[in-house]
């Protein structure tokens, strides 16, 4: 279970809060969506969850362990922009994330994201959709307790985005990793998530509603 407890954050001591008093729980194995308009603090929340930003107040607790401000393999964030290592091939990206030479697992993950035949390609030789699938495979190789996808597919055209969302749901059905999918478009989450957390548009952002689907 991943608990986000009373998270508030402001980037500047004198500035206003970006998010204020946000609390919610992500159950193990669930598929949760986080939505809100642009600038509502979704990415800030994702960075706090992944430990890349220390919040002004509040805690991130994973299975009873306080991981606030501590990046770890427990919560892995797939960023909006490409976060692949440009110097590693498809196969090496996954091997590196695994941390051990388990070629069978690498092969399985490559098959899972339909990148067979591209093992020796570098990220800049792959299309946008393939890069996103590779980011996903690499994140799965890390085997996190919570996988956060921060508008990871939003730069793609709508047809490809829908295709990837469907693939994501299929993959989730197979591996049952806990996923927090962040998007500004609530429609993206249709038929996809079990729970939707909606952030308000005014500053500071707060939870507008918690919808169970």
């Amino acid at each position: 279970m991943i608990e986000f407890c009373n998270l508030s954050h402001r980037y500047d001591e004198k500035g206003g809060y970006v998010i204020k008093d946000i609390s919610f729980i992500v159950e193990k194995g669930s598929f949760v969506g986080l939505t809100g308009p642009s600038g509502s603090g979704k990415s800030t929340l994702a960075s706090i969850a992944a430990g890349h930003i220390l919040p002004s107040s509040g805690k991130v607790i994973v299975d009873g362990k306080n991981l606030t401000g501590r990046p770890s393999k427990e919560i892995f964030l797939v960023h909006q922009s490409t976060d692949l290592f440009p110097w590693q091939t498809v196969e090496k990206q996954i091997l590196f994330a695994l941390g051990k030479k388990d070629f069978q697992k690498v092969d399985n993950l490559i098959k899972l994201v339909r990148l067979s035949g591209y093992e020796n390609y570098y990220p800049n030789q792959l299309s946008g959709g393939m890069q996103k699938r590779l980011s996903l495979a690499r994140a799965l190789a890390v085997n996190p307790k919570l996988l956060i996808l921060d508008e990871s597919f939003n730069s793609l055209d709508s047809k490809l985005k829908i295709e990837l969302f469907q693939e994501l749901k299929k993959i989730w059905g197979i591996i049952m990793t806990t996923i927090l999918l962040i998007t500004h478009d609530s429609e993206d989450l249709e038929y996809l998530v079990q729970k939707e957390i909606k952030l308000t548009s005014q500053k500071p952002s707060q939870i507008l509603e918690l919808k169970k689907r």
Binding site: S47, A50, P71, F76, L77, H79, F85, F96
Partner: peptide, 25 residues
Amino acid sequence: LVIKNTACSMEIQGYKYLWLIILPA
């Protein structure tokens, strides 16, 4: 920063962080 953050999330630290992430990048 996204590359540095991703490496931190993979718990790559110390000399490994320099040798395997910062140097090739």
